[in-house]
């Protein structure tokens, strides 16, 4: 799991570098996780698996996907083009081409549009959306959060972000079981956040 943490953090950096959407990143992690349940991968191939998943995800999500050479360069050319293409085929076959997955990015958009609508893209909303996105990114890298569905994580992340920034008070849900789940997930997210304070420092340091 230490490997995964490192790899996902690296992928998030790659995503920034290539200016890809958050959605691609979420989907890549999803593809990677599902592939790992079918096949065990040697530690030295982990990075290759990361970029290959990212490549497949971008083919689904982006208007243009990055060049393979570009991706290989990011791995310091430790792998060959052929290796990447072979792994791509293998992943697709193992996943049986099931590439549509509910992602964090989708729910983040969904919840933001539901609370405010797309038109009012004001400054406070941008801030909490950014913070929530950051929290989701951190949660991607951690196996703890594989037990929650993306919708729950995002719901909690949005709530947490709003609470931390003191913008809105979130409405509690009626369902007891759901409440418990949300509480537990929020606690986990808080722990995650406190462990990674430096990542979000600019935004919430004054609050702590």
């Amino acid at each position: 799991s230490r490997f995964k943490n490192k790899l996902v953090s690296w992928l998030i950096a790659v995503r920034r570098q290539l200016k890809l959407s958050f959605e691609s990143c979420c989907l890549a992690v999803n593809i990677m996780d599902r592939f790992l349940t079918t096949t065990s991968v040697a530690a030295d191939c982990f990075q290759l698996l990361g970029v290959t998943s990212l490549l497949i995800a971008t083919k689904q999500v982006e208007v243009y996907s990055p060049r393979i050479t570009q991706l290989l360069l990011l791995c310091c050319n430790s792998f060959s083009r052929e290796q990447l293409c072979n792994l791509e085929c293998l992943i697709l076959l193992r996943l049986n081409f099931r590439l549509a997955a509910p992602t964090h990015a989708f729910f983040l958009d969904y919840f933001t549009s539901r609370t405010t609508g797309y038109q009012t893209d004001g400054e406070p909303q941008k801030t909490w959306k950014w913070l929530a996105c950051k929290v989701c990114e951190l949660s991607l890298a951690d196996y703890t959060f594989n037990k929650y569905t993306p919708s729950v994580i995002v719901l909690c992340a949005v709530k947490l972000a709003k609470d931390l920034l003191k913008t809105h008070s979130a409405q509690p849900t009626d369902n007891k079981a759901a409440q418990l789940l949300v509480q537990q997930c929020t606690e986990d997210l808080k722990l995650l956040l406190s462990l990674n304070q430096d990542a979000v420092q600019d935004f919430i340091a004054p609050l702590y």
Partner: peptide, 28 residues
């Protein structure tokens, strides 16, 4: 696996209806 091929296959994989073509298998 071009982008459009990738999307086409992924989409067909999700669809299931008597009036919508069913993808039986993919060979690479």
């Amino acid at each position: 696996i071009s982008m459009s091929a990738c999307r086409e296959i992924a989409l067909l994989r999700e669809l299931k209806h008597p009036n919508v073509i069913t993808l039986q298998k993919v060979f690479l």
